[in-house]
């Protein structure tokens, strides 16, 4: 819950900047189209980044996979920590590729 609050605050601030830049850069776009596809698309593009950030808030007690990762690193159990790192690479990596694909479809 704490991690959720902190992350929501941060990503809202990031999205505001990205949205504003995008809307200023594409003034011809209709507002309904912006709201229904383009802006959610931008947000989706940042989902992998949010997963990376969400994994790290577990280090300070924000919950999630970061809790296990910090525990295993502190116990010097690198064989166990390796599993969490692989899981992160798989999830964030595949979402990264997928969101790029979705964004390309939206821009067309």
């Amino acid at each position: 819950m704490a991690g959720f609050l902190a992350l929501t605050l941060f990503s809202t601030a990031v999205f505001v900047a990205k949205y504003e830049e995008y809307i200023r850069g594409n003034p011809a776009l209709e507002r309904s189209k912006l709201l229904s596809t383009h802006l959610p698309g931008i947000a989706f593009k940042y989902l992998p980044v949010n997963i990376t950030l969400a994994s790290i808030v577990g280090f300070v007690g924000g919950g999630g996979v970061g809790f296990l990762l910090s525990q295993n690193i502190n116990l010097l159990d690198y064989r166990a920590a390796s599993v969490q790192i692989i899981a992160l690479i798989l999830v964030a990596g595949s979402l990264d590729l997928f969101s790029k694909f979705v964004w390309r479809k939206i821009r067309e």
Partner: peptide, 27 residues
Amino acid sequence: TLGKMIETIQMAFLTTVFAAILAALFS
């Protein structure tokens, strides 16, 4: 790891949805 990873994905997803809505209003 699987359980905690799902928790992380849920947190990131919720965060993204809430932030997207709030950011649209603010922008």
